[in-house]
């Protein structure tokens, strides 16, 4: 099971800014192991969604081109202090993770 994801959401003007940091190797499937020379199989997050108070605000698809231990920030207009933000991800092996935060 992957390590927990970090999430922080705070109001900036009339928008909420949500920042997340996920723990994931994000293997492209193209990289060769330096020692064995064998190709390291693809292992990366494929989908990320985010909701604010249950309403979907972000629906993303990712390839292995996103850096290891991905960082993601986005902004939601109309959200307010105390609203619940939930971020989910799933990877190509079926592993998944979720985290939530109240907008501060």
């Amino acid at each position: 099971m992957a390590e927990p994801m970090k999430i922080r959401a705070s109001m900036a003007g009339d928008s909420a800014e949500v920042k997340c940091l996920m723990n994931h190797p994000m293997e492209t499937g193209l990289r060769k192991d330096a020692k064995t020379g064998a190709v390291v199989p693809a292992h990366h997050i494929t989908n990320v969604t985010a909701t604010v108070n249950g309403a979907k605000v972000l629906d993303a698809q990712w390839g292995g081109g996103i850096s290891k231990n991905p960082y993601l920030a986005f902004k939601v207009k109309g959200a307010k202090k105390g609203d619940k933000v939930v971020v989910n991800w799933v990877d190509n092996t079926g592993d998944k993770n979720t985290a939530e935060a109240a907008i501060g």
Binding site: S15, M26, T28, L30, A50, V52, A55, K56, V57, L58, D59, A60, Q61, W62, G63, G64, G65, I66, S67, P70, Y71, L72, A73, F74, K75, V76, K77, G78, A79
Partner: peptide, 22 residues
């Protein structure tokens, strides 16, 4: 692999994403 990510935005999400790529 040129395709890195797609973000679909809805319900007030603004035209803004920040991430890190290879």
């Amino acid at each position: 692999l040129p395709m890195i990510a797609q973000f679909d935005l809805s319900n007030g999400a603004q035209g803004f994403v920040s991430t890190r790529i290879k």
